[in-house]
Amino acid sequence: MRWYRSSIGKKVLMAASGLVLLGFVAMHLLGNLLIYQGPDALNAYAKKLRDLGLLLWAARGGLLVALVVHVWTSIALSLENRRARPQRYAVQRTRETTIAARSMLVSGVMVTAYLVYHLLHFTFRVTNPDISHAMDRFGHPDVYAMVVLSFQQPAISIAYIIGMAAVCLHLSHGIGSACQSLGLNDERTIPAVAFIGRLIAVVLFIGYTAIPLSVLAGLVTIRGTLP
């Protein structure tokens, strides 16, 4: 049997692809935070990314592969897990597990739905075409205006906050779990790794949700950030 078809192999693939996607989520936030430096900074960053050309497509290809591997292993593992206990317990109590760990499948499906919406909204720009195709004063696509005008609509902001809550719930178990699956843990590091994983999830949640909240609160406006 090839190693990646075994239970541990699939877990390792899931962990490794998850960490790749975590890297993307972290880098994405660093880019987003440029919104606080005003329209020119964010739009210039967006242009720089697009100008990467082939490199950008290579990165997108890599992320797509990671996503497909992550989703494929999760489906395969979940089906096997369901089959492993055909008759459920009448009474089942738990002592160590967390809500995040028990809801990985639910949060994962939510993250996928959120990802589809997010791509349609900001990448393919089909959900709000009226505000998504503006140009800035340098003749570049005005990403800043698109973001601010979107988040000024409470419904869109709430959708993003719920989406990020799902991402961070997923990560709060996922990061520690990935380290365990890759065999990077020992008895002393397990609690520390779990704690750091949850901390990263919380920091990402605060960083990401701060943007729609700042827009809704009027701290970030279409002209720039309030002093």
């Binding site: 049997m1 075994s6 239970s7 096997e80 738990t94 002592r95 028990r102 178990h173 365990q180 699956s181």
Partner: peptide
């Protein structure tokens, strides 16, 4: 590990309930 997989056990998703039990 191959024998374990053949028997139809599930996969570890790091709930750590095993350690508690």
């Amino acid at each position: 590990v191959e024998a374990m997989d053949r028997e139809g056990f599930g996969n570890c998703t790091n709930h750590f309930e095993c350690m508690a039990a």
